[in-house]
């Protein structure tokens, strides 16, 4: 799986972006495993969702544009989609956690609960 011959000026930044994106996604997943509290864990995957995905998508755009000899920027669609949707999932999960804590449905609750304020369910 070797890509077609790329000039060095494109290969270097693309490699840098790929390594950065990979490290950020790995960091997010490690944080998900390492923190001892759900309210801390919910912050970890945002790393992979924002800058990690952004780096990989930028690298993909750069490489396919150079390969095709014209701007290929349809990866912007995935970026837009992720930017619009991943906060929605996070917010819903946050409110679900607060709701379950407030109503005592979370029997196997996480350690060291912070004082959860009232939810604003409509």
């Amino acid at each position: 799986m070797t890509p077609a011959e790329l000039p060095l000026w494109a290969a270097l930044p693309a490699s840098l972006l790929l390594v950065t994106g990979g490290l950020l996604a790995l960091l997010g997943s490690i944080g998900l495993l390492r923190f001892n509290n759900f309210y801390a864990r919910i912050h970890a995957p945002t790393l992979a969702n924002t800058l990690g995905a952004g780096c990989v998508l930028l690298a993909s755009m750069l490489i396919s544009s150079v390969n095709a000899g014209r701007p290929v920027i349809h990866e912007i669609l995935i970026t837009l989609f992720l930017v619009l949707t991943s906060p929605v999932t996070t917010m819903l999960l946050m409110r679900a956690a607060m709701f379950r804590r407030a109503t005592g449905r979370d029997h196997k609750g996480t350690e060291a609960p912070p004082p959860a304020p009232e939810t604003d369910r409509p």
Partner: peptide
């Protein structure tokens, strides 16, 4: 010259697999 891109790609894939 493309060795560096190949290496970066494999490194990123390993990172994603570990993350999974």
């Amino acid at each position: 010259m493309n060795g560096i891109l190949d290496w970066a790609m494999h490194f990123a894939l390993a990172c994603f697999a570990t993350g999974m």
